[in-house]
Amino acid sequence: NKFNKEMRNAYWEILHLPNLNEEQKNAFIQSLYDDPSQSANLLAEAKKLNDAQA
């Protein structure tokens, strides 16, 4: 299933973003579980936030 793979990839990438705190990571990961079809968008948002907090 495409979403499972996308979701897993997004999950791991978000988990390893160095500039997000636990609360931010948890919020993105919760959103992933709530709507796996948004994995790519959530990952993009997480990366933007990560870069902004660098």
Score class of each variant (00 low, 15 high):
residue 21 N to A: 08
residue 33 Y to L: 11
residue 30 Q to V: 04
residue 28 F to G: 02
residue 2 K to M: 09
residue 33 Y to T: 03
residue 6 E to L: 07
residue 47 K to M: 04
residue 1 N to G: 14
residue 48 K to N: 10
residue 20 L to F: 04
residue 53 Q to E: 15
residue 9 N to K: 15
residue 11 Y to I: 13
residue 7 M to V: 10
residue 42 L to W: 14
residue 31 S to T: 09
residue 12 W to S: 03
residue 44 A to Q: 12
residue 49 L to Q: 13
residue 38 Q to L: 09
residue 40 A to F: 14
residue 6 E to P: 01
residue 28 F to H: 07
residue 23 E to N: 14
residue 52 A to F: 08
residue 36 P to F: 04
residue 44 A to T: 08
residue 51 D to Y: 12
residue 53 Q to P: 09
residue 38 Q to F: 10
residue 34 D to A: 10
residue 24 Q to R: 09
residue 40 A to P: 12
residue 33 Y to H: 03
residue 40 A to I: 13
residue 26 N to R: 14
residue 22 E to A: 11
residue 9 N to G: 02
residue 24 Q to D: 09
residue 18 P to R: 14
residue 46 A to E: 00
residue 32 L to V: 08
residue 45 E to F: 03
residue 30 Q to R: 13
residue 11 Y to G: 02
residue 44 A to W: 05
residue 30 Q to W: 07
residue 10 A to N: 02
residue 39 S to R: 06
residue 43 L to W: 02
residue 50 N to Y: 01
residue 20 L to Q: 00
residue 39 S to G: 03
residue 29 I to R: 06
residue 31 S to P: 04
residue 14 I to V: 03
residue 25 K to E: 04
residue 32 L to E: 00
residue 37 S to D: 07
residue 45 E to S: 12
residue 46 A to V: 07
residue 51 D to H: 11
residue 34 D to M: 11
residue 53 Q to L: 12
residue 31 S to F: 12
residue 12 W to V: 03
residue 6 E to F: 01
residue 12 W to Q: 03
residue 52 A to P: 05
residue 1 N to Y: 00
residue 53 Q to H: 08
residue 15 L to Y: 05
residue 12 W to N: 03
residue 9 N to H: 15
residue 34 D to V: 08
residue 53 Q to K: 13
residue 21 N to F: 12
residue 24 Q to E: 05
residue 17 L to A: 07
residue 2 K to L: 06
residue 19 N to I: 09
residue 26 N to F: 13
residue 27 A to T: 08
residue 46 A to R: 00
residue 22 E to R: 15
residue 44 A to E: 13
residue 14 I to A: 01
residue 32 L to F: 03
residue 46 A to N: 00
residue 22 E to L: 08
residue 49 L to S: 08
residue 47 K to N: 06
residue 3 F to V: 15
residue 25 K to Q: 06
residue 51 D to R: 07
residue 42 L to A: 06
residue 13 E to T: 12
residue 12 W to R: 11
residue 30 Q to D: 09
residue 20 L to D: 00
residue 24 Q to W: 03
residue 31 S to G: 13
residue 26 N to D: 09
residue 49 L to D: 13
residue 43 L to D: 04
residue 1 N to A: 01
residue 19 N to T: 10
residue 6 E to W: 01
residue 5 K to I: 01
residue 2 K to P: 07
residue 12 W to I: 04
residue 4 N to A: 02
residue 41 N to S: 10
residue 50 N to S: 07
residue 53 Q to S: 12
residue 1 N to W: 00
residue 36 P to S: 04
residue 53 Q to I: 08
residue 43 L to A: 07
residue 22 E to V: 13
residue 42 L to T: 05
residue 45 E to I: 09
residue 32 L to D: 00
residue 39 S to I: 15
residue 54 A to Q: 14
residue 46 A to W: 00
residue 13 E to N: 14
residue 19 N to H: 14
residue 15 L to K: 15
residue 36 P to G: 11
residue 12 W to T: 02
residue 35 D to A: 08
residue 11 Y to V: 07
residue 54 A to M: 12
residue 37 S to F: 10
residue 54 A to Y: 11
residue 42 L to Y: 06
residue 11 Y to K: 03
residue 15 L to V: 12
residue 47 K to E: 02
residue 39 S to H: 13
residue 4 N to T: 04
residue 37 S to P: 15
residue 46 A to T: 02
residue 9 N to T: 10
residue 11 Y to H: 04
residue 54 A to D: 11
residue 1 N to H: 09
residue 14 I to R: 00
residue 2 K to F: 11
residue 31 S to L: 13
residue 37 S to M: 14
residue 7 M to A: 14
residue 35 D to Y: 05
residue 25 K to V: 12
residue 39 S to D: 01
residue 6 E to G: 01
residue 8 R to H: 09
residue 11 Y to A: 08
residue 28 F to A: 08
residue 6 E to D: 10
residue 29 I to H: 05
residue 43 L to M: 05
residue 6 E to R: 02
residue 27 A to D: 07
residue 18 P to N: 14
residue 23 E to F: 14
residue 53 Q to N: 12
residue 50 N to F: 02
residue 46 A to P: 00
residue 30 Q to L: 06
residue 41 N to H: 09
residue 18 P to A: 05
residue 25 K to D: 01
residue 49 L to Y: 09
residue 15 L to M: 04
residue 35 D to M: 03
residue 48 K to V: 13
residue 35 D to G: 12
residue 28 F to D: 00
residue 17 L to K: 04
residue 13 E to R: 13
residue 35 D to H: 09
residue 10 A to Y: 01
residue 29 I to P: 00
residue 5 K to E: 15
residue 54 A to P: 06
residue 35 D to I: 07
residue 44 A to N: 09
residue 47 K to I: 13
residue 42 L to G: 03
residue 54 A to E: 03
residue 23 E to V: 05
residue 42 L to V: 11
residue 18 P to V: 12
residue 32 L to K: 00
residue 14 I to Q: 00
residue 38 Q to T: 11
residue 45 E to T: 11
residue 31 S to Y: 15
residue 29 I to K: 13
residue 21 N to Q: 10
residue 49 L to K: 11
residue 21 N to Y: 08
residue 53 Q to D: 09
residue 23 E to M: 10
residue 27 A to E: 11
residue 3 F to M: 15
residue 25 K to P: 00
residue 28 F to Y: 10
residue 28 F to K: 06
residue 20 L to V: 10
residue 40 A to L: 10
residue 11 Y to R: 07
residue 27 A to H: 11
residue 52 A to V: 09
residue 41 N to F: 04
residue 30 Q to M: 14
residue 33 Y to N: 01
residue 21 N to D: 09
residue 22 E to P: 13
residue 13 E to S: 11
residue 22 E to I: 10
residue 20 L to N: 00
residue 8 R to D: 02
residue 22 E to K: 09
residue 26 N to I: 13
residue 35 D to V: 08
residue 34 D to S: 12
residue 14 I to T: 02
residue 24 Q to S: 12
residue 16 H to T: 04
residue 29 I to A: 10
residue 31 S to I: 06
residue 21 N to I: 11
residue 29 I to T: 04
residue 28 F to E: 00
residue 10 A to Q: 01
residue 33 Y to A: 01
residue 53 Q to R: 10
